[in-house]
Amino acid sequence: MRIAVSACERELISVQPDGGRPEDALAESAERVLPRLRQGVRNRSLYQHVVRAHPPTMRFVEQVIEAGGEVRTLSDLSERMIVCDRTVAFIPASAGRRDEMLAIRDTGVIDFLIGVFERAWLRAAPLEPNPARATDPDITSDLQLSIMRLLITGSTDSAIAHRLGVSSRTITEHVRRISRRLNSSSRAQLGYLIATSGVLDEPISQM
């Protein structure tokens, strides 16, 4: 994967879940990616909203944007993915092991993965080096929508926190606000109310 990224000539697409990345990983990415961007390679990257409050990742993002890259965020990103020049894609080799990547060269599978990326890209919020964006109402609304979707599945606060890259305390507070809004008295009732009230189809104001 490292060789493919370093040799990328036209387009580099990446999806980076799990919140803020370790500084050593960011430094390694900068060493590989930034020279490609400065030579004209188009780069689009998706991160989770939580990185907006993670200084090391934001410093890396600033470098990427200055070099011509584009970065957006969503509350929920399921798996890591890197696509180089639309000729090779890298995805996790097995569940729970995102450090082991499987190379895919089948054009049909790559086209499918890019389609998944494009749909997520359209829903994502552009990330700019501005700390105020961390509390943007649109970001909060997207996070709450993701939490409600996961509540319907019966996920626990800790499981939701892990999936969205935030703390369990943050999830608990959002669940409290959602429960208050829907007048729910129990976790089971809350899931039912979310599923039947139509709230997932409506714009969400600050709760």
Rank of each mutant, 00 (worst) to 15 (best):
L145T: 04
G19I: 10
D136L: 15
A30V: 12
M148G: 03
V51D: 01
H49K: 04
S158D: 15
D142H: 08
H49D: 13
A161M: 08
L200S: 00
S167L: 02
G165W: 05
S197H: 00
I3D: 14
C8F: 01
R169W: 10
R105K: 07
S168G: 11
G96M: 10
P55S: 13
L102E: 11
S186R: 01
H54N: 04
E118I: 02
L34T: 06
L74M: 13
G40C: 10
A159G: 01
R38T: 09
I65R: 12
D157C: 12
H162D: 09
P35G: 04
P92Y: 07
R169D: 14
R163L: 07
Y47H: 14
P129K: 06
E100L: 15
V166I: 15
L74D: 04
V175C: 09
S75P: 02
L102V: 00
S146K: 00
E118P: 03
H54V: 08
G108R: 15
L127T: 08
F60Y: 15
F112W: 02
A7R: 14
A134H: 08
V41K: 07
I147R: 06
A188S: 14
V166N: 06
W121V: 09
R187G: 03
A159L: 09
R177M: 07
R97H: 12
L122E: 15
A134D: 12
H49G: 01
R10D: 05
G198A: 07
A195I: 00
A67M: 06
H49F: 10
E173T: 05
E70F: 01
S141I: 00
R180G: 09
R133G: 05
A195Y: 03
L26A: 05
D142L: 06
I171R: 03
D136V: 02
E118G: 02
E28V: 03
E11V: 07
L151C: 11
N130C: 09
R97Y: 12
R36V: 08
V51Q: 03
N43E: 13
T196F: 07
R97G: 01
A30C: 12
N130H: 09
V64D: 03
H54W: 06
L113W: 07
N130A: 11
A53I: 01
R119Q: 15
A30S: 11
P55K: 10
A125E: 10
I82Q: 12
S197Q: 04
I171P: 02
I204L: 15
I194N: 03
R86Y: 02
S186A: 07
L26K: 11
V50H: 02
I171Q: 09
L37H: 05
I104S: 03
L200M: 03
E202D: 07
V109N: 01
L145H: 13
L193N: 00
I204Q: 05
R59E: 13
G154P: 09
E62D: 14
A89V: 00
D201I: 00
P56T: 07
H174D: 04
Q189W: 00
P126Y: 09
S78P: 01
D157K: 08
L122R: 15
L145Q: 05
A25S: 11
R44K: 12
R72M: 11
R149M: 10
L200W: 05
T156M: 06
E11D: 09
Q189N: 08
H54E: 10
N183T: 03
L150P: 02
R44M: 12
E62Y: 00
